[in-house]
Amino acid sequence: MGEQPIFTSRAHVFQIDPATKKNWVPAGKQALSISYFYDGTRNSYRIISVDGAKVIINSTVTPNMTFTKTSQKFGQWADSRANTVFGLGFSSEQHLTKFAEKFQEVKEAAKLARDRSQEKTETSSNHSRESSHEIPTSPQASSVNGTDDEKATRPAAIETLLKNDNDRIKLVSAQGSTATNKWEQELQSLGENNARLSIALQESTNNVEHWKKQLLECKEEGDRLRQKIVELEGQCADFTEEKERNTRLSRIVKELEADINEKEQELERLREDVQLIPQLMEQCEDLQKRLQAAENTNKELENKTKSLKSNIEESRHKQGNLKKELTSFLEVLDGKIDELHGFRQGLAKLGMDN
């Protein structure tokens, strides 16, 4: 039976820089398929990722490995056989969680397979040592020991009792023919004990099956709870957004309340101003009357101004005529003065002559 894929996911693959042991080096330009494979022949698990014809990850999962989440979407594990550290960047936290859970499950399975292999090795070794010192016994004694598969699945307490019974059988056999009757009685008692232990073993097997079913139900319940947790986390995110939205709305409401208070104060001032409107209306009517009287006075003044202007024009016209007449009179006067001056000079000349 060859390797079979049991789980597959997609992620960006990184390897630790062998020079610095600090920086991550991307193993490809895009996300790759990461698969868990189970080898039924070797009872082992591997993580494999291939990019075209190039093998990017070939890591055998051992019980000593640990998958560590370093962020919400990134995880890593160290492979001592490959002498490197692999890093995976997932598209979401949910994919990372599923991969980490599968890693833990595979790790536990690898540990269980290793323990079973060690138990089988120890059981086979003990069986070989006992066979080397064992004497021929009846078929009933063989049924007391049981098969290797039965030993591998018996509970520890039953194994201890069976081993003690076998030791007692060996002790009785070593006493020889002198204790044959006693040995037969002891063998019969041990056969009865073996029957009771077989019944207890069957009950234990049934209990194991029942516990396996309960474990499977618990795993299914755990998966449902994990899904519920994911949904609740999504609801928590929605609740956080709603809370932030409510905070913003509360701030907006406070601002609007402040604006309303300002508007109310302004409205109160306007109401106070409205109470002054009748006084202002009376003042306005008084001003209108004054304005009307001023307009009438202005009209009268305009009429007077027009009449004064006409009088001024007439006066100017008369003054012009007077100026002309005065000019002509002055000209005549100057002529007369000249004549009188000439006449005076004549009289003076005449007086001197006389």
Results as ranks from 00 to 15, higher is better:
Glu3Ser: 08
Phe7Lys: 03
Thr8Cys: 02
Ser9Asn: 02
Ser9Asp: 00
Arg10Pro: 00
Ala11His: 03
Lys21Asp: 04
Asn23Trp: 05
Gly28Lys: 02
Leu32Phe: 01
Ser33Tyr: 03
Tyr36Leu: 14
Tyr36Val: 14
Thr41Ser: 10
Ile48Leu: 13
Val50Ala: 00
Val50Arg: 07
Asp51Leu: 11
Ala53Glu: 12
Val61Ala: 01
Asn64Pro: 00
Lys73Arg: 15
Asp79Gln: 07
Ser80Tyr: 07
Arg81Asp: 06
Thr84Asn: 12
Thr84Lys: 05
Glu93Gln: 13
Lys98Gln: 07
Gln104Pro: 00
Val106Phe: 02
Lys107Trp: 04
Glu108Ile: 12
Ala110Tyr: 00
Lys111Gln: 15
Arg114Cys: 04
Glu119Ala: 12
Glu119Lys: 10
Asn126Ser: 09
Ser131Asn: 05
Ser132Pro: 00
His133Leu: 07
His133Asn: 06
Pro139Gly: 06
Ser143Glu: 13
Val144Pro: 00
Gly146Trp: 02
Asp148Cys: 04
Lys151Pro: 01
Ala156Arg: 11
Glu159Tyr: 05
Thr160His: 09
Leu162Asp: 01
Asn164His: 06
Lys170Asn: 07
Lys170Arg: 11
Ser173Ile: 00
Ser173Asp: 14
Ala179Leu: 15
Glu184Pro: 00
Gln188Tyr: 14
Ser189Arg: 10
Gly191Lys: 14
Glu192Met: 04
Asn194Met: 11
Leu197Met: 09
Glu203Gly: 06
Glu209Thr: 07
Trp211Arg: 07
Leu225Lys: 15
Leu225Ala: 15
Glu231Tyr: 04
Ala237Trp: 02
Glu241Ile: 08
Glu242Ala: 12
Lys243His: 07
Arg245Met: 07
Asn246Tyr: 08
Lys254Gly: 06
Asn261Tyr: 03
Glu264Val: 10
Glu266Val: 08
Glu266Phe: 04
Gln275Tyr: 06
Gln275Met: 05
Leu280Ser: 06
Arg290Phe: 02
Gln292Glu: 13
Asn298Phe: 05
Asn298Met: 05
Glu300Asn: 10
Thr305Asp: 03
Thr305Phe: 06
Lys306Val: 02
Ser307Met: 11
Arg316Pro: 00
Asn321His: 14
Leu322Val: 09
Ser328Asn: 11
Phe329Gly: 04
Gly342Tyr: 14
Met352Arg: 12
Asp353Phe: 10
